[in-house]
Amino acid sequence: VDYIVEYDYDAQHDDELTIRKGDIIKNVKKLEEEGWLEGELNGKRGMFPDNFVKEIK
């Protein structure tokens, strides 16, 4: 499942992704941690907030 970024987010920890509006995040999975998703961007896998992105259908 792929998501498109709607709002910029700067990573706060090493396991998070810095994302920018218009980025496409690939292979996204829901995490047990409420409010977070995990996906791949530019060869890096990491977490990001689910309210900054929208699923591409």
Rank of each mutant, 00 (worst) to 15 (best):
F52Y: 13
D8N: 10
G46N: 01
L31N: 13
G35K: 06
I19G: 04
G43L: 06
E40K: 06
E38F: 08
D50M: 09
L41V: 09
W36R: 07
E40L: 09
T18S: 09
G39D: 00
I56N: 04
R20E: 05
G43P: 00
E40T: 10
K26H: 13
G22M: 07
D23Q: 15
G35Y: 04
I24T: 04
V53L: 03
F52H: 12
N51S: 14
E33H: 08
D2P: 05
E55L: 04
I19L: 15
M47Q: 13
D50K: 15
W36D: 01
L41D: 02
Q12I: 14
E55F: 02
E33K: 14
E16G: 10
D50H: 13
H13W: 09
H13R: 14
E16H: 09
A11L: 03
P49A: 13
Y7S: 14
V5D: 00
F52K: 06
I24F: 04
I19K: 00
I24A: 02
E6G: 03
N42E: 11
K29E: 11
T18I: 06
I19W: 00
I25R: 00
I56K: 02
K57M: 15
I25V: 12
V28A: 13
R20M: 09
V5S: 03
E55Q: 04
D14P: 13
R45W: 09
D10K: 12
G43D: 08
H13V: 14
L31V: 14
D14M: 08
A11V: 02
F48W: 02
K21S: 07
E55H: 02
G46T: 01
E16R: 04
V5A: 06
T18G: 05
D8Y: 07
D8E: 06
D8P: 13
L31Y: 07
M47V: 10
F48V: 15
I25S: 00
M47K: 10
E6T: 13
N42P: 02
D14K: 13
Y3Q: 02
K44W: 09
Q12S: 12
I24S: 03
D2E: 13
L41P: 00
F52T: 07
G43E: 08
N51H: 04
E38H: 10
Q12A: 11
Y7A: 15
G39R: 00
V53E: 03
K29H: 10
D2R: 15
W36A: 03
T18D: 06
I4Q: 07
K54R: 12
V5I: 02
G39F: 00
D50V: 07
V53K: 02
R20P: 00
K26T: 14
I56V: 07
R45I: 09
D23E: 15
V53W: 04
V53P: 02
E6W: 07
W36E: 01
H13P: 01
K21V: 14
V1T: 08
I56P: 02
G46A: 06
E33P: 08
K54F: 04
D8F: 04
E33S: 13
R45Q: 09
Y3W: 08
I25D: 00
G35E: 05
M47D: 03
D2Y: 14
P49S: 15
K57Q: 15
W36H: 04
K29L: 12
V28N: 02
K54Q: 08
M47G: 08
Y9I: 01
H13T: 10
K44L: 12
D23P: 01
I56Q: 05
K29M: 11
G46E: 00
Q12L: 14
D15K: 14
E55K: 03
Y7E: 15
E32T: 13
Y3N: 03
D15A: 13
K57R: 06
I19Y: 02
K57I: 15
Q12T: 09
R20L: 10
D14R: 13
E40I: 10
G22N: 14
N42D: 13
G35P: 06
G46F: 02
P49W: 08
P49G: 08
E34F: 06
I56H: 06
D14Q: 10
D2I: 09
L37G: 04
K44I: 11
V53Y: 03
M47S: 12
G46V: 03
P49M: 14
K54M: 08
N42Q: 09
K21A: 11
D23Y: 06
Y7V: 13
V1W: 04
K30Q: 09
M47P: 06
G39I: 00
I24E: 03
Y3T: 03
D10F: 14
G43M: 07
I24K: 04
L37Y: 04
F48I: 15
V28D: 00
A11E: 04
E16P: 00
E16A: 07
R45S: 14
Y7K: 15
G46R: 02
K29S: 13
T18Q: 08
F52P: 02
I25E: 00
L41M: 07
L37S: 14
G46Y: 01
D14S: 13
W36P: 01
K57L: 15
D2H: 13
L31F: 10
K26V: 13
K54D: 09
F52Q: 03
Y3P: 00
I56A: 03
V1S: 15
E6V: 15
E33G: 10
T18W: 05
N51W: 08
L31A: 14
I4D: 03
E34Y: 07
N51L: 04
G22K: 05
I4T: 04
V5Q: 01
E34H: 12
L37R: 03
K26D: 03
D8G: 05
F52E: 04
D2T: 14
N51E: 15
K30E: 08
D14L: 13
T18V: 07
V1G: 11
F52R: 05
V53T: 05
D23I: 04
K21H: 09
T18P: 03
G46H: 01
K44M: 13
D50Y: 05
E32S: 13
E16T: 03
G46L: 03
